[in-house]
């Protein structure tokens, strides 16, 4: 229909700067390439430096493409840092936290979207408040909760002094369970908007057929919330993976990529310093290679997941209009 109408207009006006005309397409392609370049530039320059042999680093004529690309920097970095341990730890912690977060947030969002109990709007207001308040506001007191952990004071009644949960993934997992990890308010908001837009008739039909609340949630709501769940899962996984604040506050000694990336130069300089004189060019080469190695798993996963992610995005109704 629309294409038809467009065709008619094309006949009327020959040269135009409208969607569909070649001029517009060229303009659009230029802009897309430009923005893509801005986004990819840091990655490309990292790749270029990481692939360069040392001679190319001092060579004035070599700017982007290494003359003799080598993987030496990558090999060196793999020797300097314990890559497999970091990868496994980060993968384990982020996937566990993401799983708990998505489960807790979905439950909460369903509760907020479909049940009219007392205090619901207050609860939702508090969820938004958690999003607005920086975690740093109550950082010290939260830290102490986990430094001297006695189940939030419940075991303190019995005179239990508390054990330290710092440098274990438990603080993160507990916060994920309570929907208090980073940006969980946003997840609840998104999921609530999506679940609200699903037709109520679905649930009513299930009620009539004799399904309980649990069954309705598990068999009716969850499958229908697929797109939103995919979006939220990807975001929560990625944001946990990248979350420097939580990692450096509660798990500073754990082998996580986010803390490693933050002080990669320092780590590499220290590891290098043992063997030879510290060389800034070397450090730069290794830092770039190391950063690429750290980002690589995330990029690979995103490319695999992007199809579902973008589909999910289209149907999430994040906006809830």
């Amino acid at each position: 229909m629309r294409a038809d109408a467009n065709k008619r207009f094309k006949r009327r006006r020959r040269i135009s700067f409208r969607p569909g005309s070649w001029l517009w397409k060229l303009f659009r392609a230029g802009i897309i390439v430009g923005i893509s370049y801005i986004i990819l530039y840091p990655l490309l320059i990292k790749l270029a430096v990481a692939l360069m042999p040392e001679a190319d680093m001092y060579d004035m004529t070599v700017k982007w493409i290494p003359r003799r690309p080598t993987l030496a920097s990558f090999k060196e970095v793999l020797q300097l840092i314990d890559y497999p341990a970091y990868l496994l730890t980060t993968l384990g912690v982020s996937s566990a936290a993401a799983l708990v977060q998505v489960a807790a947030c979905t439950l909460a969002a369903y509760g907020l979207a479909r049940f009219s109990f007392r205090g619901r709007s207050l609860l939702f207001f508090l969820v938004i408040l958690t999003l607005v308040l920086p975690q740093q506001t109550y950082m010290t007191t939260t830290y102490m909760q986990y430094r001297y952990f006695n189940l939030y004071g419940l075991l303190g009644i019995f005179g239990y002094k508390g054990a330290s949960l710092i440098n274990t993934p438990w603080p993160l997992l507990l916060m994920s369970f309570g929907c208090q990890a980073a940006k969980n308010g946003l997840f609840i908001y998104v999921l609530r908007q999506f679940l609200k837009r699903l037709p109520v008739e679905l649930e009513e039909a299930a009620w009539v057929d004799g399904a309980g609340v649990g069954t309705i949630f598990y068999r009716i709501m969850l499958p229908n919330a697929g797109p939103a769940l995919v979006t939220v899962s990807v975001l929560s996984f990625v944001w946990t993976w990248n979350d420097l604040y939580t990692a450096s506050t509660y798990m500073p000694a754990m082998k996580l990529f986010s803390t490693l990336l933050n002080n990669l130069t320092f780590q590499i300089t220290r590891a290098e310093g043992g063997s030879s004189v510290i060389d800034t060019v070397h450090v730069s080469m290794y830092t770039n290679a190391g950063a690429l190695l750290i980002i690589a798993p995330l990029i690979v996963m995103f490319i695999i997941a992007q199809r579902f992610f973008v589909q999910g995005v289209e149907r999430t109704g994040l906006t809830g209009m």
């Binding site: 439950l107 958690t130 208090q180």
Partner: peptide, 25 residues
């Protein structure tokens, strides 16, 4: 009443991991 069950983890989180630390802070 089932609604309360669904938001139970959220309530725990809001009280113990948000409300209490924020008040203490």
């Amino acid at each position: 009443r089932w609604g309360y069950l669904f938001v139970l983890p959220l309530c725990c989180g809001l009280i113990f991991m948000f409300g209490v630390p924020a008040a203490r802070s």
